[in-house]
Simulated scan of single mutants.
Amino acid sequence: MIWLTWRQFRAQTLVTLGALAVLALYLVVLGNQIRTFYTTRIADCTGDACTLARFELRADYGHTISVLVVVLLAVPGLIGVFWGAPLVSQELEQRTDRLVWSQSVTRTRWLVVKLTVIGLFSVAVTGVFSLLLTWSVSRYDQVIGERFAAYNFGSRNIVPIGYGLFAFVLGVVVGLLVRRTLLAMALTLAAFAALQLLVPAVARQNLMPPVTETITVDAEVLRQGVGMSLEDDGTFTLRGYTVPGGWALTDSSPLLKPDGSAYTGDDAKPCIAMVGDRAESDACTAAQNLRFTHTYQPADRYWTFQWIELGLYTALSLLLAAFGLFWLRRRR
């Protein structure tokens, strides 16, 4: 069965290995270019030179990295559509499965071998791609940050391995259920795309209880370039604050005075009068000891989130595979 699976899958394997080799070469070149930029422009910079260098780094490489991220996020879906969905549905549709089962190969062994061999190859493809991209853009991520951003989180380190495995098993099981190749491909793509949108938007932030802190508006907070918006009710809201390296779960928070009451336009007038001098205006605001609450996921939880999400996708893959085996054994 392993030999037969290889014979049926060797064309896709060779094409994939060739594409991966070309991509690896490009990512190595890109990674070296970013490292050279970092060494010459950022490593020893100070003051405004650092700000300009960071801007140029994003301008020079941000678009290219975004394209690579989209490609990596699409790879698991393509695996599910073109490797997973036709793998069994095509056999059932053409009734070639009956020939295999008549050769002393049980249907359980038939499916287990297919899931194992090609599933491991799916894991290897997404894992190698992810590790190459993670290495290539590591200096860019170090400077720009945003590790918890949805696209960045889903395209770095170990999480894409879970995506690749899940998408493949999902395609196989959908094909097993509907027994029509084109329909299975369409349903697999729709289901995987929906999950990829829902997890970062709804589920990921709740994998661990968030942290809520009361933050004092001081010079360090103001240096982040936060915005203070005057609302219709005459109170101020602070926007754009992020704990360094963390994942902000609140976009805005009401500004409060030390006694807990709302900070109003009248309270801000002395500092607004200094708007011509940003340093004096910021010092005036900081001296008022304003506070706001901020809900976030700390930076040191990044790898915990990676492992949790990988574990969840792996568990879902195993459950789907078990269901597929159960369903196949019940088929008459």
Results as ranks from 00 to 15, higher is better:
Leu4Gln: 10
Arg7Leu: 13
Ala19Gln: 15
Leu20Asp: 02
Ala21Thr: 07
Leu23Trp: 14
Leu27Trp: 06
Leu30Tyr: 07
Arg35Leu: 06
Arg41Gly: 09
Ile42Val: 09
Ala43Ser: 01
Asp44Phe: 08
Thr46Met: 10
Gly47Trp: 01
Asp48Met: 04
Ala49Tyr: 10
Cys50Asp: 04
Leu52Ile: 11
Phe55Met: 08
Ala59Val: 01
Leu68Asn: 02
Val71Asn: 10
Gly77Phe: 01
Leu78Met: 15
Leu78Glu: 03
Ile79Tyr: 01
Gly80Pro: 00
Val81Tyr: 05
Phe82Glu: 08
Ala85His: 11
Val88Lys: 05
Glu91Lys: 12
Gln94His: 12
Arg95Asp: 09
Thr96Tyr: 09
Arg98Ala: 15
Leu99Glu: 03
Val100Thr: 12
Ser102Gly: 14
Arg107His: 11
Arg109Val: 13
Leu111Arg: 02
Leu115Trp: 14
Val117Pro: 05
Ile118Ser: 03
Phe121Thr: 06
Phe121Trp: 02
Ser122Pro: 04
Val123Ala: 02
Val125Pro: 07
Gly127Ile: 04
Val128Phe: 09
Leu133Phe: 05
Asp141Ser: 11
Gln142Leu: 06
Gln142Lys: 04
Val143Leu: 11
Phe153Leu: 04
Arg156Asp: 00
Ile161Leu: 08
Tyr163Met: 04
Ala167Phe: 00
Phe168Arg: 03
Val172Gln: 11
Val173Leu: 10
Leu176His: 08
Leu176Tyr: 12
Leu177Phe: 13
Val178Trp: 09
Arg180Ser: 08
Thr181Gln: 11
Leu183Glu: 07
Leu183Asn: 02
Met185Phe: 13
Met185His: 10
Leu187Thr: 09
Leu189Glu: 08
Ala191His: 03
Ala194Glu: 05
Leu195Met: 10
Leu197Ala: 00
Pro200Phe: 00
Gln205Thr: 13
Leu207Thr: 01
Met208Lys: 14
Pro209Ala: 09
Val211Asp: 00
Asp218Cys: 03
Glu220Lys: 10
Leu222Ile: 00
Arg223Thr: 00
Gly227Leu: 14
Leu230Phe: 07
Glu231Gly: 14
Asp233Glu: 06
Leu249Asn: 00
Leu249Ala: 11
Ser253Gly: 06
Leu256Lys: 07
Leu256Ala: 06
Gly260Arg: 08
Ser261Glu: 07
Ser261Val: 01
Tyr263Asp: 00
Tyr263Gln: 00
Gly265Val: 07
Asp266Met: 10
Ala268Lys: 11
Ala273Arg: 13
Ala273Val: 06
Met274Trp: 04
Val275Gly: 11
Gly276Ala: 09
Arg278Tyr: 13
Ala279Lys: 14
Glu280Pro: 01
Ser281Asp: 06
Asp282Tyr: 15
Asn289Met: 03
Phe292Ser: 08
Tyr296Thr: 02
Gln297Val: 03
Gln297Ala: 14
Arg301Asn: 15
Arg301Gln: 12
Glu309Gln: 14
Glu309Ile: 15
Ala315Tyr: 05
Leu318Phe: 05
Leu320His: 02
Ala322Leu: 15
Gly324Pro: 01
Trp327Arg: 15
Arg331Ala: 15
Arg332Thr: 13
